[in-house]
Write a protein that binds this DNA or RNA. Structure first.
Length: 288
DNA sequence: GACTCGTGGGG
DNA sequence: TCCCCAAGAGT
């Protein structure tokens, strides 16, 4: 084990957040729901919807028994509502393939809708204590700084990066699982993207980036996310109208939400194709 | 590999 | 205010 492990594991024991999906009584399903919601959405905004979700649908079977539109509505304003559809589809697959129990094996998990390498590893590790490299944006940033000495990781994980993370993974599964969540938490709370709190970092005396004087990022420009006037904004507006309505809505409501005809029609078509909404009449639309 | 896909909070 | 971005996945 490198000298990174003990300090980070000790730091985690002392500073970890008390999150619902981390409690001993949390079910694998609770962990899975949290991982879907946390894909690109901050913890603070996930807490409320996660609790409501687990109360309403305590099991995959409970969710699978409902129309997908109910999942989309309960998703609320977490963003990227296709995740709600995928979570519903994953719950359905769990009922069909795994007798309603969230599978523990990576291969079974990654075969589920909406579950990629990160989410499969996270569920296997956090919910079942299995040994997996959990390579999320936090972990990648911590390793980039502490080991590689650069401020930010590359756009996509490289082979070398994965090898590095694999090499750091403790041998014993329970320790590996604790290590995975500890490094992630360090990235989320201390080694943050914007203004890292290096003074509070348990590995500040061995961080390559800090020892180098925190050199400025020197890679390709990281492009920001355009928003104003984009299809994503348009889709979001249209979906908000349907979420907030209790039944089918007339096109006039959608026109009011997004006046531009061409873009509205394009987004409407894409939302129908995504099955995030359905047409229920000549001029009325609803959640599926 | 580059793009797309929502939302709202903090610096 | 404006910009950055937060536990990714699918195409």
């Amino acid at each position: 084990m490198s000298t990174l492990h003990a300090p980070i594991l000790d730091w985690y024991a002392a500073h970890q957040r008390d999150l619902p999906w981390r409690r001993p009584e949390a079910s694998p399903w609770s962990v899975m729901v949290s991982e879907f919601m946390l894909q690109q959405t901050p913890v603070a905004r996930v807490l409320g919807p996660h609790e409501a979700w687990l109360t309403r649908w305590p099991t995959p079977a409970a969710l699978a028994a409902e129309p997908t539109g109910e999942a989309v509505r309960a998703w609320g304003r977490l963003g990227y509502p296709r995740r709600a559809l995928r979570l519903h589809a994953a719950a359905t697959a769990i009922v069909e393939r795994h007798d309603g129990e969230v599978p523990a094996a990576y291969e079974d998990l990654v075969a589920l809708p909406g579950v990629g390498d990160y989410t499969a590893s996270a569920i296997a590790s956090f919910a079942f204590g299995r040994r997996h490299v959990v390579l999320d944006t936090n972990v990648r940033r911590v390793l980039a700084r502490a080991v590689s000495g650069v401020e930010f990781p590359t756009t996509a994980p490289t082979r070398a990066e994965r090898d590095l993370a694999t090499g750091l993974l403790p041998d014993e599964a329970p320790v590996a699982a604790e290590w995975a969540v500890a490094v992630m938490e360090l990235g989320a709370l201390v080694c943050t993207a914007k203004s890292p709190d290096c003074g509070a970092c348990p590995v500040r005396d061995q961080c390559a980036w800090l020892l180098a004087g925190r050199p400025a990022y020197d890679g390709p420009p990281r492009r920001g996310q355009a928003w104003d006037g984009t299809d994503r904004q348009c889709r979001g507006r249209l979906m908000a109208v349907l979420r907030e309505a209790h039944g089918p809505v007339h096109v006039s409501s959608l026109v009011a939400a997004w006046p531009d005809h061409v873009q509205r029609e394009r987004c409407l078509a894409s939302l129908l194709a995504d099955q995030l909404m359905v047409q229920v009449g000549d001029e009325t639309y609803a959640l599926p």
